[in-house]
Design a protein around this nucleic acid. Structure first.
Ligand code: FES
Ligand code: FES
Lengths: 146, 146
DNA sequence: GATTAATTGACTAATAAAGTCATGTATTAT
DNA sequence: ATAATACATGACTTTATTAGTCAATTAATC
């Protein structure tokens, strides 16, 4: 029951962009380096975001990518939805017909509740919240080094 | 981010046993038929439960398996833990050292919160709760057929 | 001792995820 | 123009994990 690396990397990449919000285009190569993701893989992760319009991009010299929406307007549920699809722990939560005993299956309810619980967490948090947490962390890290 | 069939089948199998609690040994073959799981697969799922002592078993004629603890004392978190291990959506939640940027990674916190949310749902529910839900469902199903 | 049913181990198949590589297209600078 | 840069796209390979099967074994009953 692990999140795909796709979702984890993608989220980290977006957080990286959020940390550079309104600073002009950043190179995907730099995001890849900072987040320790291979560039070619990252290119595939970022593509759907660009298509969706939450990431802007421009090619060529002085090109790059950037967050196209305010971080406080992007909630994590939406991001994970794009990167990974539904977080239902069983297919039958979203498509009851895929489970033979659906309709008289008590466990289905439980899987549904889990999905709801996950969604609640993710929908209550925006990229901006992550940015703030990240800034605190980085600060702590520096302070501790004294 | 799907639960393994191992965990889903295993939970259903235990619910089946819970529905037959205190009715003597039931044949694994019958559980398999009712729950539409292949017998050979189910045998592998039930083994760790027997080892753990929450399922009793006896071989040979008139043998079978049964729930060895009261359903209200078995919570789902425990079951899923046995069948699938931790429900942390990222390895670094349980083992921070597996993620290179751990310690200064804001997303790790989010994955942690998701784990907590899932565990809360599962730990608040026992097999007995499932039994009651299941009985309601079956009843509804019959009623609706009138 | 014949039959039944759980136990165990080894093995195969199927699926999906992760990652790479090569090619194409748009943009800018000279 | 054209060379250089950087995103875009598609095809492909590798890897890992899960799911599932089969066969042999052990224990209990009749
Ligand atoms: S209906 Fe899908 S697990 Fe029961
Ligand atoms: S530390 Fe594991 S996702 Fe960041």
């Amino acid at each position: 029951m692990k999140l795909s690396t796709r979702a984890r990397y993608g989220t980290r990449a977006l957080l990286d962009l959020a940390l550079h919000y309104k600073s002009g285009p950043v190179l995907l190569k730099d995001v890849a380096r900072r987040q320790r993701i291979s560039l070619s893989y990252l290119q595939h992760l970022i593509a759907p975001m660009v298509a969706e319009g939450i990431v802007g991009s421009i090619r060529g010299v002085r090109g790059g990518v950037w967050l196209a929406k305010p971080p406080e307007e992007i909630n994590l549920g939406y991001i994970i939805g794009l990167l990974e699809g539904s977080l239902a722990p069983a297919e039958c939560v979203d498509n009851p017909e895929t489970c033979s005993r659906s309709g008289a299956c008590a466990t289905q309810d439980v899987w549904g509740e889990i999905k709801e619980a996950i969604d609640t967490v993710l929908e209550s948090m925006t990229l901006q919240d992550l940015v703030e947490r990240q800034k605190n962390k980085s600060h702590e890290e520096i302070t501790y080094q004294i």
